[in-house]
Nucleic acid binder design. Sequence first.
DNA 1: CAAACTTTTCAAAGCGCTTTGGTCGCGTAA
DNA 2: TTACGCGACCAAAGCGCTTTGAAAAGTTTG
Lengths: 351, 351
Amino acid sequence: MNLKQLAEQLGLSQTTVSRALNGYPEVSDATRRRVQEAAQRFNYRPNARARSLATGNSMIVGHVIPVSDRHEMVNPVFMDFIAGAGECYTRAGYDILLSVVTDDDEARTYRRLAKDGIVDGVIVHGPRHEDPRVPLLQSLGLPFVVHGRTLATDPAFSWLDIDNTRSFRRATGLLTDLGHRRIALLNGLEWMDFAQRRREGYLQGLADAGLTMRPELMHSDEMTEDFGHDVAARLLDGSEPPTAFLVSSCITALGVRRAVETRGMSVGRDVSIVTHDDDLSYLGNRGDVPSFTATRSSVRQAGRRCAEILLGLIASRQEDQPTPPVQELWESQLLVGRSTGPARDRAEGTT
Amino acid sequence: MNLKQLAEQLGLSQTTVSRALNGYPEVSDATRRRVQEAAQRFNYRPNARARSLATGNSMIVGHVIPVSDRHEMVNPVFMDFIAGAGECYTRAGYDILLSVVTDDDEARTYRRLAKDGIVDGVIVHGPRHEDPRVPLLQSLGLPFVVHGRTLATDPAFSWLDIDNTRSFRRATGLLTDLGHRRIALLNGLEWMDFAQRRREGYLQGLADAGLTMRPELMHSDEMTEDFGHDVAARLLDGSEPPTAFLVSSCITALGVRRAVETRGMSVGRDVSIVTHDDDLSYLGNRGDVPSFTATRSSVRQAGRRCAEILLGLIASRQEDQPTPPVQELWESQLLVGRSTGPARDRAEGTT
DNA sequence: CAAACTTTTCAAAGCGCTTTGGTCGCGTAA
DNA sequence: TTACGCGACCAAAGCGCTTTGAAAAGTTTG
């Protein structure tokens, strides 16, 4: 059943039926009710493609997920982010178009989504420190929101980020306050913006305590469980093992814990761990005293908010009312759990 | 730049230009080259919405991801599955439309995707043992592939599943061969089809060894890390603790390991763990001797194959050549890792 | 050289919707 | 009574593409 048929059934014009269903005022209440009732009865639903061709809006937003070339790893946080964003989209009648692409395909994908008119806007995931996607999207004129940030805050674009620097500085401070002097950093890939900011925070935290950075304690890679285990194992077996680990992801932290525990040591007593926690739905760490001391920020909530912002941008563009970009910097929560305790320095023989 | 403008530029009709670009034979080679070259130069790209309105194909496939009402958990395996499927779609020029929905919205979502003509086909994720979505989709006439299976193999539809029963039977056998007699099962939600089949396999495995099932050792819930930890903790602290755990997900197995190790016991020596391993990109368990003994099957590869099958169905429908449904049952690999060893029965005081 | 094809190109009719620019009554003010 | 405004409805023109049916140009044949 399409609009034409429905209109014929009702003895009305397509115009009137369309207006009645879309809530335009120039239709009498009686007619509107009659139309709505008939639409229901015949199970009529407007064809989304035809509608979007006529209106110019596809009611679809794009999420372009980068997947690493090397390990083909796709960061599990995206799923939670999208789940959050999805709630918002669903309410507004939007759908998600997902593109999982390797780095070299990214620009091409954005161009395609924009120029073919497939989506009304996009969310940019996993921004690099200097990310060519921002100028690209600006030149394409497609509304977008970056989850995270890039170096250049100069060109005005919308983003939502957590204060990575500050939260890792505080986390480092928590460890130095406990007496830790050799703190390892297990970070994400170094060209990711968040990783650079976290390292910055870590370095500031060390400096705050008058400690000097040791390059051998700083590692960055994709945040897998293996990465955490392997690096921690190597460091713990070394001559001057760290007494604490500052980690960028719960998954990696689980790997660190594995390395600690298989060495007969205890997390929280012999070795401390602080991790960033995206509050993923399947990775607990809840409770009054979570098992990991963590800097927590819900990626799902970030997804919700990014979606809101994007829909706002899209709406304002449709109404030709340019709005200033939205930029939000969220504080993450520092939660003290069971994975931290006073430093026990094996290397120097102290307690 | 749209088709009309491009045609004017070239002094050709829209028809010819369209045909030239879409590879129809009734265009001379010279003209085709000229058109292609001009399209390139003017950076022309056909509008996807208009094209899909004209052809009736949207070049989009839907993935409807169920999200649990209770914990709002969204299973992390979906992301890897989609990454696999995405490779295939990209090659064929298809995009993914993602809907993350709670149970009660699922039927509505499928109806919408089908009737509004948004997608050309869908992948059904997380099938329940008796799943109303299968008859629904059949009645809608939308091509679909189920990742997993449902009870009714009777109505002919396409699916790809792993032999859950067999793999959990073998896993149980591995444990009983090692002398384990009290084996706990930590399974997914019981109405999920895979969970029922795995339980079936577990029970068969017990029966093979002449063991009787103990209800207090069988648990099923969402496969979070906490679930693994909490159940394992409770069981291990009980009077007759299990000597082995058979677990449905690596994440949950990590939780079990946490419970074991915080109790000063050693995985593989004091307590054995076998888990199903979806071969997720960020959850290692690789190497010659993986840390977890596991039944492994790559969910990413499943994604690739499901996508292939679905595109096949879509193509055959477009050509009005109905094909028989494709049904594939994959064997999963049983990998012996470091998490299993001979039973050490603390309860009975034996070694 | 005309008839009969084949090849190449085109005009126009969709696809199913929205939206512009009306018309047609009818009530109210001049 | 004429004029005007307004509410309720409609015909038709897009949106940008594909595809049908036909015409023009070029190539063989008898």
